[in-house]
Design a protein around this nucleic acid. Structure first.
Length: 212
DNA sequence: ATGACGATTTACT
DNA sequence: GTAAATCGTCATA
């Protein structure tokens, strides 16, 4: 029996949600019933209206980012660089447009199909390169704009399976600045990236990560 | 109507 | 290490 988090799990502030998602399982069920899944090992928090790196900075609300304004527990999937998708879990409640970017998962189910979907991970064949980046995991799990605005609490196509009741202990979580947001000035430096310490499936190797 | 820009990945020097 | 790929979106006009 698959246990999904309650709505209240998602309605927390984005930093708490970014931490709480670590160690939970992201599950994708394709139309033909095949399952693709992995353990979430890296996330980033986007703090909404005041966060210069967030797509909802200063209240921006467009067709692209509309899903970020939905209730906690929905997805916000966006298209970027003309070729990639990235998947967020919306936090808090409508009117507080915050989210958590899913940056890496440790693949656990459907690896064969993931390798088919991610040819670049085949040379050499290495599961560490399968889902170690926000666009890589979307490609591997077949997540695109069709899954934008999906409700993770009720969807049969994409959901979170709760593997642990409590957030990982701070000592098991490493913290760093977010990746790829240098345009955001002071906000680029803030410690809003969270990943499982010593996990080999994160998007970037960090020699001496700061715990927290 | 136009132009600049990405919450990235990949291949290559 | 650097650079190319590639195009929807949005701000400006």
């Amino acid at each position: 029996m698959v246990r999904r988090p309650a709505r209240s799990f998602f309605r927390r502030d984005p930093v708490a949600l970014a931490r709480a998602l670590l160690g939970q399982r992201l599950v994708r069920v394709l139309d033909d019933g095949r399952r693709l899944a992995g353990t979430i090992v890296e996330t980033e928090a986007y703090l909404g209206l005041n966060d210069a790196a967030a797509h909802t900075y200063r209240g921006r609300r467009t067709t692209r980012n509309a899903s970020m304004w939905l209730d906690g527990g929905h997805t916000y999937v966006y298209f970027t660089y003309g070729m990639h998708y990235c998947c967020n879990v919306v936090a808090q409640t409508p009117g507080r447009p915050t989210a958590v970017l899913l940056r890496a998962i440790e693949p656990t189910e459907g690896l064969d199909l993931m390798f088919e979907r991610r040819p670049a991970a085949k040379h050499p064949q290495n599961p560490r390169n399968l889902c170690s980046g926000p666009a890589k995991l979307c490609a591997a799990l077949d997540i695109d704009r069709n899954l934008d605005g999906e409700d993770l609490q009720t969807s049969s196509r994409l959901f979170i399976e709760q593997l642990r009741a409590r957030t990982l202990p701070a000592a098991a979580i490493a913290v760093s600045p977010r990746i790829g947001v240098d345009y955001a000035g002071a906000w680029a430096q803030k410690p809003l990236r969270f990943f499982c310490r010593d996990n080999l499936y994160v998007s970037r190797f960090t020699p001496h990560p700061k715990s927290g």
